[in-house]
Design a protein around this nucleic acid. Structure first.
Length: 288
DNA sequence: AACTCTTCCAACCGCGATAAG
DNA sequence: GCTTATCGCGGTTGGAAGAGT
């Protein structure tokens, strides 16, 4: 006999997650930490399979997730890493703090692939000594699209970086539309009731998050999440946390020199300059 | 205003690797 | 060592929202 099933397929809910379900999941993970997803549906009463819970947590509710538009630098990183690693979205995501692999994958498929295609065809045309008129026609579409790069830079600061803020936003919208909470629909854990009755400040403190190596600390004034290494108490910003994680992995995996080389290369300013060059080219395309 | 088309992204599906019994 | 479930990943899809006609 092998393992028992994580959940029977009967009665499993599918589709978009409701704020109630999010709160239940977040409060459970706060209490027990991420992992052991198999027990999550059973212990929380969520009618979701463990897989769905894990996905919801890692792609949406996990602290430190930045949502919203990608910066030019992030896009450059993705383009470079995709060229080097292929469609290894999880690997690429590990170099982009606060972005999920799903987010990167979506952004690549919907934006970057098109941008690159245009960029490459523009290069081909220009190498064939094309006239200005031809180049103008190539980029005309992006001009009409509303100068997406300018918009991108303007709104890049509107991203939000923690599950606290995610949940607060969800709650704010949801509470407005749902004047009275139906306790039966939410579940039976006391943590859920606490979450629903507390204010934003309280919610943020409840949502401080601990995993195996790092403790996430939520800054109430900025809603930003910082990480503290539970081993040595060192405070880390999310980016630093990612790097420390990498360093640990690298130390544990000595027969993987290409990765450390890649990391060095990526952090090299001269390389970053090349990325910027390419992005400037792409931005030029929207100016034409 | 109503309809169609396109874009975008959250969530699902299927598969390989790994772990548990 | 075998069987079976879980985990994590990449590909794909469904539907909401916006744009165009």
């Amino acid at each position: 006999m092998g393992r028992p099933p994580c959940c029977d397929k009967v009665g499993i809910k599918k589709g978009p997650w409701t704020p109630e379900e999010d709160i239940i999941l977040v409060s459970y993970v706060q209490e027990h930490g991420p992992g052991n997803w198999r027990s999550v549906p059973t212990n929380t009463g969520l009618l979701r399979c463990s897989k769905s819970c894990r996905l919801r947590w890692s792609n949406y509710l996990r602290p430190g997730i930045k949502r919203g538009n990608f910066t030019t630098h992030e896009e450059g990183m993705i383009v470079h890493l995709q060229a080097l690693l292929g469609n290894k979205w999880a690997a690429i995501a590990s170099y982009l703090p606060q972005r999920t692999d799903n987010d990167i994958k979506n952004h690549w498929n919907t934006h970057l692939k098109k941008k690159l295609r245009k960029f490459q065809s523009a290069l081909e045309f220009s190498s064939m000594a094309a006239t200005d008129e031809i180049v103008y026609e190539i980029f005309d579409d992006s001009t009409r699209a509303g100068s997406s790069n300018v918009k991108l830079n303007q709104s890049s600061s509107s991203s939000y970086a923690s599950s606290t803020e995610n949940i607060c936003r969800l709650l704010q919208g949801w509470m407005r539309s749902t004047p009275k909470i139906n306790d039966n629909s939410i579940g039976s854990t006391s943590a859920n009731c606490d979450l629903l009755s507390c204010g934003d400040d309280q919610l943020e403190s409840i949502l401080s998050f601990e995993n195996t190596n790092n403790v996430a600390l939520v800054d109430k004034s900025t809603s930003k999440t910082t990480f503290q290494d539970s081993e040595n108490g060192e405070k880390l910003n999310p980016e630093r946390k990612q790097k420390v994680g990498h360093q640990k992995n690298l130390n544990n995996d000595n027969d993987n020199p290409p990765l450390s080389f890649l990391e060095k290369w990526l952090l090299d300013e001269s390389t970053a300059g090349q990325v910027e060059d390419m992005n400037q080219m792409m931005e030029l395309s929207s100016i034409f």
